[in-house]
Design a protein around this nucleic acid. Sequence first.
DNA 1: AAGTTTAGCAACCGCAAAACG
DNA 2: CCGTTTTGCGGTTGCTAAACT
Length: 306
Amino acid sequence: MGRPPCCDKVGVKKGPWTPEEDIILVSYIQEHGPGNWRSVPTNTGLLRCSKSCRLRWTNYLRPGIKRGNFTDHEEKMIIHLQALLGNRWAAIASYLPQRTDNDIKNYWNTHLKKKLKKLQDGQNHGGFSASQPKGQWERRLQTDIRLAKQALCEALSLDKSSSLTDSKPSTTNVTRPHHVFGPTYASSAENIARLLENWKKNSPKQAQTNSDTAANSSCSETTPDHGFEHSLFSFNSSNSSDASQSVDENVKLTPETSLFHEESKPNIENQVPFSLLEKWLLDEGCSQSHEDLINMSIDDSSVGLF
DNA sequence: AAGTTTAGCAACCGCAAAACG
DNA sequence: CCGTTTTGCGGTTGCTAAACT
């Protein structure tokens, strides 16, 4: 209610994150795990508000994030999901484990909206389109149906993956218990390594203190678009010997790192076979009832877009 | 080549929901 | 059960680089 915004404090830094700040944050989270954001600024000495720290972590520093170069496949999924869910980016992002909601939102606003509009203009007449969501009650209904369906899927797959699914209570990442760390956070070292490597590369020129550098260095350039299969799920197996080599002392891959896991993204693949969902989302002929649902909200134009 | 416009993206802000005591 | 605190989400802004004139 009457609580003042966390960022109103004087002495709180705003604007792009520097690589130094990134490293401090990553080191801290590696040690303590994500969560309890309130205490992060005080404990790290970062002149950032807790919100800013959390955002930076979830959108850029968190391991397993893929940036840039959305594949056709991902585009399709986003379009379908947006038609189904509306602008519920977090829910959409939960189906694209390597993408952040912010990234998806930006991509939608800058690319897909235009693309669909163009297409819509091309086709000109007729009905609504994917970029024009239907009534809210319909969307809610669709969402509810989806959630129910997913709950069912979860229940069915519970046996197989019960040991791994503790980290996530529900399918969407709308709500999540705090301080729930799963077993596979080793990939954090990857991001840190990339961060440091690129920082080293860039620093001789100038400590280009802008978040571009940080963001790019930590993510995009070193993770070109190899498709879904790679970065997130192969981190553990490939487990970057080179990454840990280049990593600083205090951010080296340690057993504790396993504490660390993908905290802010639901681990979809652990509960519902991801390919199943994809199939359902993308395969128009998948099943009759599903098709009906999808057809309720998805314009054919968007389906035939690609 | 310089100035202007546009596009893309990182980050901020405010609100709402969840968690906590 | 209620008030407070913390976290998460979606909309929006502002900066930078690319494209255009």
